[in-house]
Write a protein that binds this DNA or RNA. Structure first.
Lengths: 151, 151
DNA sequence: GTATTTTATATTGTGCACAATATTATTTTA
DNA sequence: TAAAATAATATTGTGCACAATATAAAATAC
């Protein structure tokens, strides 16, 4: 009887593990982000803006680059965040091709509430000090992998 | 000047790394799966079926469980695979609530072509023998994480 | 200085992902 | 055994993800 090829088994595939882990992790964020009225990708965009500073002016392309997403994903996402009142989208008068994204006051205020999210998440996950080592190791390996996957 | 909180930085967030890694990995699969006329989630479903054996009868729920996806994702995906001719969807006469999913001959044949995908992928990634250790370590840590994320 | 090319963003279309709800069949209970 | 509860799948609606294309502005070439 021919054996089923090992490398084709779901359990042996890194990609499926990444896919599962990513979705499971996002699921853990969801109830926390619901309270901020954000989806996970929206939260990512807000983090890019918060991290760039309250007065920062980012282009759509800047945000796409940092998150490795394309305009087809980001443009409508930014429109929804603008509709929520968290940011403004204004065409740059200096270069009419560009659209400048800036935090509104409400978008800035949201950061205060968002700061609690990472800690709350750890708590929900039940992370102890002894897990820190594994966590750091995992993040190191993931960084290497992402690096290699993008050449 | 108040320092920006470390734990809110994108680079320090495991979830973003998982999200990036998962998308980057799927991107690497895409050109290979295009040749099989499959998307990555469709490829996952086919792997579940192949792994269960050519004659296996799986319910929609079985597939949802193995991939940790819900029916809202899987039902239309199965319809597309059925339209491609890779599987059949037949309501179980024993229990009319259930829908039995079975591979067609064409779906079985596709496995032969799919067997090349994992190796081709490694090749594209430029994986060497010395990477095996890191790979095993990463997969171990990911398995642990997924396990914990689903209680 | 106009034509060409490049750059930045938007639009369209398909396929997930998932919450919420609906539908229908089976099982359990009163 | 009729009603209630449970189970299996489907449907609906919103929001990504991304390829392909469109649009328009700026840069460059000629």
């Amino acid at each position: 009887m021919a054996k089923y090829p090992e490398q084709l088994k779901l359990d042996n595939q890194m990609c499926f593990l990444l896919y599962s882990a990513s979705r499971s992790m996002t699921r853990l964020y969801r109830p926390l982000l619901d309270e901020l009225n954000l989806t996970y990708p929206q939260y990512l965009v807000m983090m890019v803006l918060w991290e760039s500073g309250e007065k920062a002016k980012l282009s759509v392309g800047d945000i796409c680059e940092k998150l490795m997403l394309d305009t087809g994903t980001v443009t409508p996402l930014l429109k929804r965040l603008a509709a929520e009142g968290y940011l403004t989208r204004i065409r740059d008068p200096e270069d009419e091709r560009r659209v400048v994204i800036r935090l509104t006051d409400e978008g800035c205020r949201l950061r205060g509430r968002a700061e609690a999210v990472p800690l709350q998440l750890m708590c929900n996950l039940g992370v102890s000090d002894s897990d820190t080592e594994n966590r750091d190791q995992l993040m190191g390996l993931l960084k290497e992998l992402v690096c290699r996957l993008n050449q």
